[in-house]
Design a binder for these strands. Structure first.
Lengths: 126, 126
DNA sequence: CAGCATCCAACCGGATACTG
DNA sequence: CAGTATCCGGTTGGATGCTG
């Protein structure tokens, strides 16, 4: 259904699965090439707790971005891979990464300048 | 611990200003067309507190995405507009919105299906 | 191996009140 | 009008310990 596309309603809900967690895009990016197991993902990402990894993967699975395949072996083996929808989301993630690659320096420069003149002139100049 | 450009560190920092706040992209989108004043932004977005709006605008200004212009009149007048960098960020925001427009139905369907079989089969099949 | 459960600290963000 | 200051509840996310 087409809703009144106010900027707020759109971008507010925007990123369905992207918005909530800072890890979502990282995970999707990690699955870019191949299927990965839980701990492969964990090690590949680094710095993510298994609680967060598990819950974020759940959400990605629920939203249809990731398919979870369980092999009833011992020890258990669980594989995660992107769905077609997930590969679409990957395009967004890659666009974000490219943006950062291109503009990281600009942003850092802007920050330094802002911080510099913020300390000298706490408030307003014409 | 300093890390190289692993996919994780990249996407982790990814979105510099995008990641932290759910309002960032909304604000950028609101400024798509024209310069806006503080309360114009606030009303246009709807549902954002002025505390969050002010702090998010600060961050956007600091990162070089938004330019803040103060007119020393009474009553005061402050205008916000996108910088060139901000317009680049806008492209990301628009890509996200388009993604949602295209795939919202898919995601909602996936969720319903997931929730349905989650309640019938709490765990693992095959 | 792949998680879930619990506890807990940090942060995000809303409501309200007040200022230049 | 355009904010800042304060309080404070809900959520996020890390660490740890335990299970099939």
């Amino acid at each position: 259904m087409s809703e009144p596309d106010t900027p707020s309603s759109l971008a507010g809900e925007t990123l369905l699965a992207v918005k909530p967690s800072k890890w979502t895009l990282v995970i999707v990016t990690s699955l870019r090439e191949n299927t990965l197991r839980f701990n492969e993902l964990r090690r590949g990402i680094g710095g993510i707790s298994q609680k967060i990894l598990a819950s974020t993967l759940r959400e990605l699975e629920r939203d249809g971005f990731v398919r979870r395949t369980v092999f009833a072996t011992i020890p258990p083996r669980v594989e995660y891979q992107l769905t077609a929808l997930g590969r679409d989301l990957l395009r967004i993630a890659e666009a974000c990464e490219q943006f950062v690659r291109e503009h990281r320096a600009d942003v850092e420069a802007a920050r330094e300048q802002f911080d510099a003149q913020a300390s000298s002139a706490p408030h307003s100049q014409i």
